[in-house]
């Protein structure tokens, strides 16, 4: 399985993402610059964390107009898995590929520490290797992870089981309903604030993030086997 790791000016978790896929998962990964105009040769797209274009105006607001984002939309339309982590999640929200928006953390502080997450939906292509309601340890590192959406959108998210991860025991940033990660209605776009790519080896303090990438590979292999 071949993963594209998108690199925006300011991305700084791209190398962690690449390492997670290449060295820990044992799959193929390549960096793709934000001004590239094709993602055809890739099976999945990873939008890494960090920053993008200085995050002027709002986080991800300028990145969403990068040429590569047209290709991300096309890849999403044909059902390829798209994973946006941290700034990647913010870009997906700004692009309208996921509903809602990010606000500054309630505490106004940048928070960088491991948190507990609960897997609310283990029936997505990103979470099938987890057990339902399993509590996992994944680090967060953000100043704007305070997820917001209106009540109607929240009701839709709940009705469609689109909330995949929630903060467990404490809510670090004030996000509504403790939301840490959501998928689109079709289920092939996941946005999450915590960094699974930073939790892929016990040496890093946790290997709980690896199952997320393994879920993606498993789904891809199964659909590939069916199609050939």
């Amino acid at each position: 399985m071949k993963f594209a790791v998108i690199v925006f000016p300011g991305s700084n978790c791209d190398i962690d993402m690449y390492h997670a896929v290449k060295d820990e998962l044992g799959e193929e990964a390549e960096y793709v610059m934000s001004d590239a105009t094709s993602l055809e040769e890739y099976d999945a797209v990873l939008l890494p964390g960090g920053f993008s274009f200085g995050d002027y105006l709002r986080t991800g607001a300028i990145a969403r107009f990068s040429p590569i984002m047209n290709e991300v939309v096309k890849a999403a339309e044909i059902g390829k898995p798209i994973l946006g982590v941290c700034n990647g999640f913010q870009v997906l929200l700004e692009a309208g590929l996921l509903p809602g928006a990010m606000r500054r953390n309630e505490s106004l502080k940048f928070i960088c520490r491991p948190v507990e997450l609960q897997v609310k939906n283990n029936e997505t292509m990103f979470s099938s290797a987890y057990k339902k309601d399993e509590v996992i340890h994944i680090p967060i590192a953000h100043g704007e992870g305070n997820y917001y959406c209106d009540e109607q959108t929240l009701a839709t998210l709940k009705a469609n089981n689109q909330i995949v991860f929630t903060y467990y025991s404490t809510n670090p940033n004030g996000s509504i309903e403790n939301i840490a990660g959501i998928v689109n209605a079709r289920g092939n776009i996941l946005g999450m604030m915590p960094h699974p790519e930073r939790a892929v080896d016990p040496l890093l303090g946790s290997a709980d993030g690896l199952k997320l990438f393994k879920s993606m590979v498993k789904q891809w292999r199964e659909s590939y086997a069916v199609n050939t």
Binding site: L57, A101, Y148, C149
Partner: peptide
């Protein structure tokens, strides 16, 4: 499209 985010 850019200067404001109509969601918030």
């Amino acid at each position: 499209k850019l200067l404001a985010n109509p969601v918030i």
